[in-house]
Computed example of a mutant assay.
Amino acid sequence: MANFKILSELCVMVPNKNQLLVYIDGEDNLTIEQFYTSISSKLGFPDTFGNNLDAFDEMLNDLEWLNENQIFIVFRNYDDFLADENDELREVLLTIMDDAAEEWKSDSGTKTLTILIEPSELGVDDLETIGISYEDEN
């Protein structure tokens, strides 16, 4: 099963008590600094989070502080996500998320990480460019 899913419409999922649904709105995350602030707040990263790619990778591979076992990161307005940065940085973040999701799969099923992208041609292009498999609801 792929770690990414391209949705055909806006996400309408209602999480249960074992699920955490985190929305990342591209319109509010134009820079990497805005993304770090947003993701660390929504996933409750410890104060030791270093606001860099290595720290982001480390946090996604830990998540021990979360009670929920299923974590969904939903990208809304993906076409605007990191618009003030270069495409390569966005692709590195996607790779980190995919790698973390794979790591969780091999960790006796303690947690799962799934990344959902609301309808976006850029999202499809990014995933295909870096060779990340995805499910497509279309």
Score class of each variant (00 low, 15 high):
2 A>C: 04
3 N>Y: 06
4 F>T: 04
11 C>T: 11
12 V>E: 12
16 N>K: 12
16 N>M: 06
23 Y>I: 10
24 I>T: 10
28 D>S: 15
29 N>F: 14
30 L>V: 14
31 T>P: 15
32 I>H: 05
34 Q>V: 11
35 F>Q: 04
39 I>N: 10
45 F>I: 00
45 F>S: 02
46 P>Q: 01
49 F>E: 00
49 F>V: 01
54 D>Q: 13
55 A>P: 08
59 M>N: 04
61 N>G: 09
61 N>F: 00
62 D>H: 03
64 E>M: 03
64 E>H: 09
65 W>L: 01
68 E>Q: 15
68 E>F: 06
70 Q>R: 14
70 Q>A: 13
73 I>D: 07
73 I>T: 07
79 D>G: 03
79 D>N: 13
82 L>P: 13
91 E>I: 02
92 V>K: 14
95 T>K: 13
101 A>I: 02
103 E>T: 03
103 E>I: 00
104 W>G: 04
105 K>H: 07
108 S>I: 04
109 G>K: 09
110 T>E: 14
112 T>S: 15
112 T>W: 05
116 L>C: 10
117 I>K: 05
118 E>F: 08
119 P>W: 03
119 P>Q: 04
127 L>V: 01
128 E>L: 11
128 E>G: 05
130 I>T: 09
132 I>L: 15
133 S>M: 04
137 E>Q: 15
